[in-house]
C-alpha cells in the first residue's frame, strides 16, 4: 500500500509542477502545453479514431516485422550457436552490427524499397533481428546439453528435435532476448514511421510537430510509452513468469 501511495504522490507532484509551470505561462502553449490540454488531445485523438488507426497500423507492422525477426533470428541463432565456423564468422559480424543504431538502416531501406511499407519493415527487422539472433545463440549454448541428448535418445532428430526439444529447452534462456528484441523493434518502428507519411504512431508524432500542436505530440508520446509498457511489462513478464513456474525455477509465490 505504501508503495502505491508513494507512486501516486510522486506522479501527482509531477503533474502539479507541470500544471504550475504551464499556468505561469513562461513559454507559449505550443511549446509547453498544459496537462489538461494533453488530456484533451488524447481524448480527441481517440474520439476521431486517428489514434486507433495509428495504433492498428503500427501494431500490424510490429507483428509482421517482429514475427520475421523471430523466425529469421531462430534459424540464424541456431546455426551460429551450433556451428563453430558460423560462430566465428557470422557471429562476429552480428555482434559488430549490433552497435549500429537501427535507424541507420533507413537511408539504405529507402533507396532499396522507396518510401514504402517494406522500407519500414526492413528497419524494424534489422532493429530486432540481431538481439533475437544473439539471444537464440546464447540460449542454444546455455541450454543444458542433457535435453538434447535425452531427445535424441528418445528418437527425436532433425526438425522434430529442434521443435520439440531444443526450442522449448532454450526458451527460458531466450525469453529475455525476445523481450529485448521487441523493445528494439518498437523503437525502430517509431523512428522509421517518423520519416514519411505512413499512418502509424510515429507519423502522428510528426504531424503534431507540423501543426505546432505540442499537446498532440505529448499525447502520442504517452501513447507510445503506454503500449511499450503494456507489451513489455505485462505480456512478456507474465509469459516469463508462467514459464518459470512451469519449469520450477520461480520462488513459490
Amino acid at each position: 500500500m505504501k508503495h502505491v501511495a508513494r507512486q501516486v504522490i510522486f506522479y501527482a507532484a509531477l503533474i502539479g509542477i507541470w500544471a504550475l509551470l504551464a499556468k505561469l505561462k513562461i513559454w507559449p502553449p505550443y511549446i509547453f502545453p498544459t496537462p489538461w490540454g494533453v488530456v484533451d488531445a488524447l481524448l480527441a485523438g481517440f474520439k476521431d479514431h486517428s489514434f486507433w488507426i495509428a495504433i492498428g497500423v503500427s501494431m500490424k507492422r510490429m507483428m509482421l516485422g517482429y514475427g520475421i525477426s523471430v523466425a529469421l533470428g531462430m534459424v540464424l541463432g541456431l546455426g551460429v550457436g551450433s556451428n563453430k565456423f558460423l560462430e566465428e564468422t557470422v557471429g562476429g559480424l552480428l555482434v559488430s552490427l549490433q552497435s549500429l543504431p537501427s535507424i541507420c538502416w533507413l537511408p539504405l531501406a529507402v533507396l532499396w524499397f522507396g518510401l514504402t511499407e517494406k522500407a519500414i519493415l526492413f528497419v524494424v527487422v534489422m532493429g530486432s533481428l540481431l538481439s533475437v539472433t544473439i539471444a537464440m545463440e546464447d540460449g542454444r549454448k546455455h541450454m543444458p546439453k542433457i535435453y538434447g541428448m535425452a531427445g535424441r535418445n528418445l528418437g527425436a532428430r532433425g526438425f522434430a528435435l529442434f521443435w520439440h526439444v531444443l526450442l522449448p529447452a532454450s526458451l527460458p534462456y531466450i525469453i529475455s532476448g525476445l523481450k529485448q528484441g521487441w523493445a528494439f523493434a518498437w523503437r525502430s518502428l517509431i523512428s522509421g514511421e517518423m520519416i514519411f507519411v505512413s499512418l502509424g504512431l510515429g507519423q502522428l508524432l510528426m504531424m503534431g510537430r507540423d501543426l505546432n500542436d505540442m499537446s498532440q505530440v505529448i499525447a502520442v508520446m504517452i501513447l507510445i510509452i503506454a503500449i511499450g509498457y503494456i507489451v513489455d511489462g505485462l505480456v512478456f513478464k507474465s509469459v516469463e513468469r508462467r514459464l518459470r513456474n512451469k519449469w520450477g525455477l520461480a520462488p513459490a509465490t
Binding site: I146, N153, L154, V165, A169, W247
Partner: peptide
Amino acid sequence: RILIFQELGLFPW
C-alpha cells in the same frame, strides 16, 4: 536402446 541418464533429463516443460 534407451538410456536413463544419471541426471535423468526429464523435460521440465
